[in-house]
Design a protein around this nucleic acid. Structure first.
Length: 145
DNA sequence: GCCAACGTTGGC
DNA sequence: GCCAACGTTGGC
């Protein structure tokens, strides 16, 4: 899951413990959110910052539910086309697990041949929520310690 | 701040 | 249903 650290960082999650992950407004990312289950582990990625990369691990505490911001007229994420009966957008709740001693930077990830087909390292990729395979998870977390 | 890549919108 | 225009993402 990607987040801009200026908006919400791994340190913010560490401090708060839990956070509702809302505001996803891309259908592909939404579908990946909906596929998440309670207890699933998440790689937390910092994007649009000085050193983009995976900075820690979180865990799904609550599986997908209707993203409340889509009904909030005051929210940037308000969607007038969504309805309470058939909510268009979903959110999940995540919990802090740990922060890596040092980030696994995008640059590092690009140098791992096994990760070449991962959307994350591909140029022009804009997906903010994406699945990670077991081998990819292993590769990435191995680089963290 | 620039710009490539991509998703969405809307005219036809 | 095509595709140009536009807005957004995100690395650099």
């Amino acid at each position: 899951m990607k987040s801009e650290p200026d908006v919400f960082s791994i340190d913010d999650l560490a401090r708060k413990g839990r956070e509702v992950w809302d505001g996803v407004r891309n259908y592909q990312a939404r579908n990946f959110l909906r596929a998440m289950q309670m207890g699933d582990l998440v790689l937390f990625y910092h994007s649009s910052c000085a050193v983009p990369g995976v900075v820690g691990i979180a865990q799904i505490r609550q599986a997908a539910f209707a993203d409340p911001t889509q009904f909030d007229r005051a929210s940037d994420y308000f969607d007038a086309a969504s309805s309470a009966l058939e909510p268009r957008w979903s959110a999940v709740e995540v919990e802090f697990v740990r922060k890596f001693a040092a980030p696994v930077t995008l640059e590092m990830l690009k140098n791992v041949a096994d990760l070449a087909d991962m959307a994350l390292v591909r140029r022009g990729n804009r997906l903010s929520v994406m699945p990670v395979t077991e081998p990819q998870w292993q590769r990435i977390t191995d680089l963290a310690d």
